[in-house]
Design a protein around this nucleic acid. Structure first.
Length: 753
DNA sequence: GGGGGCTATGGGGGG
DNA sequence: CATAGCCCCC
């Protein structure tokens, strides 16, 4: 066993050893917060606390995983039974056991943001509301905010402040949409991300079968990382678990008000301020010594944050004297920024002998990643982009996942809508609309309509077949493991076959993604790791789906890890790198134009920048471009005000950053829009229109040579489909992508031979 | 049924 | 600029 206590400084050590009663640790960046949390858990276990009595809520699953690994090497005790993970993943696990107490199936589906938006759009439509006023995204965030603040639909409807606000924004019916949305999700056996928290709260609050006491008893020691980024609802759950008469109140929260950057999703700094009054016995520890960065970086960070209005007083300091000054780069354009940063990375690699994995490029918006990708690729530097469209959001992946979801929970309307006619099986738009309408009207799921609905016309047989198929998938899912089931579904749904048919470059890529998905499922069932908080390892499809619904980019394993990391500043929270580039340091970008008129939001942007620069251990480079393409226009933005808030002596060169802005937003100057060049049309084919005599469609047969007015001569290779819906595959040798599928009933073709 | 081209619209951060 | 939604056309 490692003598871990002696590796800590006095304050850290106190925070680790003080295991009974409420503890709050205010920890500056790089002050060994993770060490404290990790060693605290290790210390608990060495003091004889059973691992299953420890609940540790971290910000990412990766952080939880790394903590467990570290603990295992430190104390050599089996840590697998510690409840460690994100709020969402831990609560999803508990709800999987307890959700029947709330009327949900234990195989409930987790709706992602796209599903949520789709449900909301449908409600807006069926309510006959104007889509111009009701933007699904706005509505979604209103509903999400309500849930995060424990406001039920009923409370929402009675809250005049909320109703007035919505009325002012010309969306007076949001309360009604909220009510319908909640009902619809419930009826579909689905929870969205907020529900994972909200239903957990309900579970404890309603306390059916004394389930609250069960978990209060189980979680005798509770630890919460990044406490400054928890919202009202999350804190309410923690209090349900810990704050009750006779509680030992063994709760430890760790956070830093200066790094609070998630208020947009309901996080509230109030929680930190509230904590000491909710738990009067709280002992507070402040970790202020920074072990991560060198002096110029720390100095800059301290100075920067003094520009914020409210903060808990603390000053971070370091013994890492000296160190390189901060590099500041003034660049002409955003493209140039990509080139310069890639070049600097090469240079630093050679001069300072650091490897790809030591570098990070951090930006305010994910859309900025592209130029850096381009130039890194050009310089042959391996990189990985975090955030953006994840693997699980790709169309082909979502298609197969929809089938898997449907097998587990056929009431999942969103999944059903996605695949009822994919691959094509002759259940057209009209039939689907009809089913949806009936479902809405009778307040049942679409799945129920497949059996009880009033289905007329040709699609009836196809619908019957589809429903049979999903039923058989469901039986498979309840009998076999996730991989066997998924493989079976991929084959028998026709998804795999549809993919194989598409031999274009993109099509091959999509097939590879599907294969990767299936491989991932195999990995899941082969994995020996005991993510099993229940007693048996759960290898079912249902378990797999719950697992991946909460994965992020950081949770995917890969062979090679030596890459430059590209990510948003938000995503970089909690990480550190030898060399960090913070790019796009311009007004209207960082700080974001969305925040410019609100002092509170400006403060949050500043905290975000604080987080960005404190990721760097040794080298920090800040860059800004004079011109940048934004929303189709060249824009001239001033250097970010944040650059001016860092003392000049921190920088390696002095750059004239212009007038200090007095807090007023500077209107971005813009250039006239440049008209796009017309795209080249199909080459003109020399066909005399007056000679063109299209032949009747039924006379066209495989093997014929035909003439088409735009595509020219072509060879009929294949004819598929029945009667009126025959589709011909014709090879037109005179055009760019010669193989075309044409529906014969529309096409005008003249038979040549 | 579905792809291509056009227009309107948004425009941030994420579990 | 990117994307969504629409219409047109085959």
């Amino acid at each position: 066993m490692v003598d871990y206590l002696n590796t800590l400084n006095p304050v850290q050590r106190q925070a680790v050893e003080c295991i009974d009663g409420p503890v709050m640790v205010i920890a500056g960046p790089g002050s060994g917060k993770t060490r404290v949390l990790t060693y605290r858990v290790a210390h608990l276990m060495r003091s004889g606390i059973a691992p299953w009595n420890i609940l540790c809520l971290t910000f990412t699953n990766k952080a939880a995983r790394e903590m467990k690994e570290r603990i295992e090497t430190v104390v050599g005790i089996d840590v697998r039974k510690v409840w460690a993970g994100t709020f969402h993943s831990i609560f999803a696990r508990i709800l999987r056991i307890e959700s029947p107490k709330l009327g949900y199936p234990s195989d409930f589906t987790i709706y992602d943001t796209d599903d949520t938006k789709s449900v909301i759009s449908e409600i807006i439509q069926t309510m006959g509301l104007d889509k111009k006023n009701y933007n699904p995204n706005n509505v979604r965030s209103r509903i999400s905010a309500a849930k995060s603040n424990l406001i039920t639909p009923k409370m929402y409807a009675q809250n005049s402040e909320l109703i007035d606000y919505d009325r002012m924004n010309r969306m007076p019916m949001i309360y009604k949409i909220y009510e319908r949305y909640a009902h619809k999700c419930f009826r579909a056996g689905a929870m969205d991300f907020d529900d994972l928290l909200l239903q957990m709260y309900r579970l404890l609050y309603e306390n059916k079968d004394n389930v609250k006491q069960k978990y209060q008893h189980a979680f005798r020691y509770v630890l919460v990382d990044e406490f400054q980024d928890t919202n009202y609802l999350q804190y309410a759950i923690i209090k349900e678990l810990v704050n009750y008469p006779g509680s030992p109140e063994n709760i430890c929260v760790v956070g830093d008000d200066a790094q609070s950057i998630y208020s947009f999703r309901g996080a509230t700094i109030e929680n930190i301020l509230q904590f000491e009054s909710d738990f009067p016995a709280t002992q507070t520890f402040k970790l202020e010594q920074n072990y991560r960065s060198t002096d110029p970086i720390i100095h800059a960070a301290n100075q920067l944050i003094t520009h914020n209005r409210n903060q808990i007083q603390k000053k971070i300091w370091t013994e890492n004297e000296g160190g390189s000054k901060i590099k500041i780069l003034q660049i002409l354009s955003d493209t140039e920024e990509g080139r310069r940063v890639a070049d600097l990375i090469l240079e630093q690699k050679n001069r300072n002998h650091i490897t790809n994995r030591d570098f990070a490029i951090l930006y305010r918006t994910n859309a900025q990643s592209r130029v850096f990708e381009e130039h890194l690729r050009r310089n042959n530097i391996a990189y990985k982009v975090f955030g953006g469209l994840s693997f699980y959001q790709r169309k082909e992946v979502k298609d197969l996942l929809a089938y898997l979801r449907l097998a587990v929970n056929p009431k999942d309307d969103e999944a059903l809508k996605r695949v009822i006619n994919y691959p094509r099986r002759g259940i057209g738009k009209k039939s689907v609309e009809n089913l949806i309408d009936q479902a809405t009207e009778s307040d049942q799921s679409i799945w129920d309509m497949l059996h009880n609905g009033n289905i007329k016309g040709r699609s009836a047989r196809m619908i019957e077949q589809f429903s049979q198929m999903i039923g058989s998938f469901g039986r498979k899912a309840s009998e076999q493991d996730a991989y066997t089931t998924a493989m079976h579904i991929a084959k028998h749904s026709g998804v795999l076959a549809a993919m194989r048919e598409d031999t274009s470059m993109e099509g091959i890529g999509r097939l590879q993604n599907l294969t990767a998905l299936l491989d991932g499922i195999k990995e899941f069932i082969d994995a020996d790791e005991a993510e099993d908080i229940g007693d048996v390892q759960d290898k079912t499809l249902s378990s797999y789906l719950q697992n991946i619904a909460l994965l992020t980019d950081f949770d995917t394993s890969e062979e090679s890890t030596d890459y430059v990391s590209l990510m948003s500043v938000h995503a970089a929270k909690g990480l550190e790198f030898e060399s960090v580039f913070v790019v796009g340091m311009e007004e209207n970008l960082f700080p974001s134009f969305m925040a410019m008129s609100d002092p509170n939001q400006l403060d949050e942007e500043r905290r975000l920048f604080y987080v960005a620069i404190t990721r760097a251990k040794k080298l920090l480079c800040l860059s800004f471009a004079k011109t940048r393409y934004q929303y189709g226009q060249v824009r001239f933005n001033d250097p970010s005000r944040f650059l001016k808030e860092i003392p000049e002596e921190c920088f390696d060169t002095v750059i004239n950053l212009g007038q200090q802005t007095n807090g007023l937003p500077s209107e971005p100057k813009r250039l006239r829009r440049i008209a796009p060049l017309p795209k080249p049309k199909l080459p003109k084919l020399d066909i005399d229109v007056s000679d063109f005599r299209p032949s009747p469609s039924h006379t066209i047969k495989e093997g014929m040579t035909v003439l088409h007015l735009k595509f020219g001569k072509g060879e009929v290779q294949k004819i598929e489909g029945n009667n009126a819906n025959k589709v011909a595959t014709i090879h037109f040798s005179q055009i760019d992508n010669p193989s075309r599928k044409i529906m014969l009933k529309f096409a005008k073709l003249q038979i040549l031979e």
